[in-house]
Design a protein around this nucleic acid. Sequence first.
DNA 1: TCTTACGTTTACGTCAACGTAAGCTTATAA
DNA 2: TTATAAGCTTACGTTGACGTAAACGTAAGA
Lengths: 133, 133
Amino acid sequence: MTMTVSEVSIEYSISMLSKEFGITTRSIRHYEDIGLLSPTRRGQTRIYSAADRTRLKLILRGKRLGISLENSREIIDMYEPGKTNVDQLKKLIDAIQQQRTKLNQQLDDITKLLKDLNKAETDCVEALKSNSQ
Amino acid sequence: MTMTVSEVSIEYSISMLSKEFGITTRSIRHYEDIGLLSPTRRGQTRIYSAADRTRLKLILRGKRLGISLENSREIIDMYEPGKTNVDQLKKLIDAIQQQRTKLNQQLDDITKLLKDLNKAETDCVEALKSNSQ
DNA sequence: TCTTACGTTTACGTCAACGTAAGCTTATAA
DNA sequence: TTATAAGCTTACGTTGACGTAAACGTAAGA
């Protein structure tokens, strides 16, 4: 059987993803347990698509921002508005606005913390200088 | 007994702080349990100073950034370099740099997430428009 | 053939960050 | 004076996000 390039889609094993992102396979399976991922199977073995990999990437980005897995699911689902229902769309827009508010708060927190760190560092450097004299 | 204004320092009760920051008194006591706060006492009752309140503020800011209480303690302690030891100072500068790296990563994550949210929102609005026609 | 690597499921364990009583004291308002 | 609010300690419970161990299947290389 022959196969053209267009028929081949990218696939990832669980260990490939765990190595790429520096997490354990247990974590990846856990994300599946709670319905955040649903890779296809070849026999029992999990096969991850490029879309699955992207979802995982989004999950990890959320984690770095202190977003719970549960909330990550909601956020990720925002990107795929397969919901034609008007009420659901309005809810989505509302949720998006809330998330934006939280992110802006984080932005503010980060700039403040960075300023504090700068101050702390110069203080340290000063202390080192006066110590070496 | 008379008292001049300069003798009076600002004090807070535990419930005042819990209301101001929208957290439970249990949380505040928990932060004390693990050594993040150490208010003075009037009898058994906790009395919080302006400095205590600031520490609490920093803790909560850290929480919004997904920083653990343990790490928050370290970060907060960076601001008070009572350490004259050169090694400790160098360690501090190193920790500061690490924290900065993490924060910059978060900054990047946030801008990306905000972009995604904008896209998701316009998609929603579009869907609403085509739905109302 | 045997071991080594990678995959699987099931299930109990753990750690952080509190929640949630229970049972007690003290102060102020009705 | 009673009850209502605010404070306290002690201690067990809970939730999220995995860790860890057991017990097993499958495929490739020495």
